[in-house]
Design a protein around this nucleic acid. Structure first.
Lengths: 209, 209
DNA sequence: GATATTTTAGAACATTTGTGCTATGATTAA
DNA sequence: TTAATCATAGCACAAATGTTCTAAAATATC
């Protein structure tokens, strides 16, 4: 998965700021001090990771041999948690957004969304979403909104069941039909006040080999 | 005088090119190799000079701690020689322009000229130009052209005398009047075919203390 | 021409800085 | 749980790199 850890995000921002101020990149020890990292080897380790994920070029054995490469054509959205059968469906809240530490970051191309506001990612655990053609390990990109058009896929909570699934949503006001992506399975219709739209699905990403 | 040596100009261009390619500044030894300089101390020496003249910032004891500061609002023109009584008036020629080595470079603000083409500088030796209010040590900025408007100051050669002076030029076609900047002295009129316009004067710079 | 100043050379030195290694804790996979 | 992988720590080492010093050459100054 092409995401970077929080520490790597901090390092990346430090490098950007440092270059902004000094016009030359920081040394490993500059980064160490600037990001409160205990060891130079940890910095080096994470710089290599950032190179692997393509966020920067690293000229080895060259002091300050760093070059930021990532184009700014991606939005960063948080990976808020996992979707698993029996677990509550994670939703962003104020705490989640402000609590940056420990969050993984997912990069979304600009072409996919207009704004990262309310957008987050969830990783699927297990096969509970199999009828939405979403399998174990997939990454679901969601936007927190209750405003979905008919036919769009959304995370829907059936209040009477206290269950949450990903379904295509059709509503005529009084009733809401939930239709699985897998047409082999039958759609179900509920009273609209028994249905809560949690978030709409923007995309599903599957990383293979 | 705020000019830099040819070697310093080469160093400056090397630094610019290096940053262009690598996104980080060169080390002293990079410069040494790139500019064919025999010693690191010479590079360091010239970097200090460039810092004094304001062409770059130098963060001492910091590797690659260079930052180009000079705004690109100046043209570089060559200092071709000196104006001295009895000496021939230096004029640019093809050799002069192509022979970059050993020439001092003068920086001209963009606001002063539209283009550095044909523009050069001369340093005044002695008081031979005193009637143009130009004294020893002044720097005269000239543009090689024979196209001067009436009233402009130019370097004018009086062919019959084989002498060259800086005078305000007024021509009505058949006759050309040469008027000293110092109105106390009298103007002289010559047949136009006895007069050769060498260059027009763009400015006079005097550096004091 | 004699003297002072600037510039270049060369080399040694000290600091900076990237790397390598081992150990430890944290997280994940089976 | 147990093993494996990932991430962090700490330290020592070697290479990279800026500095310093002396001397010579070039240039400017008087």
């Amino acid at each position: 998965m092409k995401s970077i850890s929080e520490r790597q995000k901090i390092i990346l921002e430090f490098i950007q700021d440092f270059i902004e101020v000094n016009d030359y990149p920081p040394t490993i020890r500059d980064i160490q001090a600037g990001c409160n990292i205990s060891s130079t080897s940890v910095v080096s380790y994470n710089l290599d990771k950032l190179k692997e994920t393509g966020y920067l070029d690293r000229n080895s054995e060259v002091s300050r041999g760093l070059k930021l490469t990532k184009n700014n054509s991606d939005f960063s959205v948080p990976l808020l948690g996992t979707i698993a059968a029996g677990s509550p469906f994670p939703l962003p809240d104020n705490d989640t957004w402000s609590d940056v530490n420990g969050q993984e970051i997912i990069e979304i191309p600009h072409s996919m969304i207009n704004s990262p506001d309310g957008v987050y990612a969830l990783k699927v655990k297990g096969e509970s979403m199999i009828d939405a053609f979403i399998s174990d390990g997939d990454l679901v990109i969601m936007e927190q909104t209750s405003n979905v058009r008919n036919g769009q896929m959304a995370a829907v909570r059936i209040i009477s069941d206290d269950s949450t699934t990903l379904k295509h949503v059709y509503s005529d006001g009084e009733y809401t039909k939930l239709e699985p992506a897998n047409k082999q399975m039958k759609a179900m219709t509920f009273e609209s006040n028994n249905i809560q739209i949690l978030s709409k699905v923007i995309g599903v990403w599957r990383y293979l080999g």
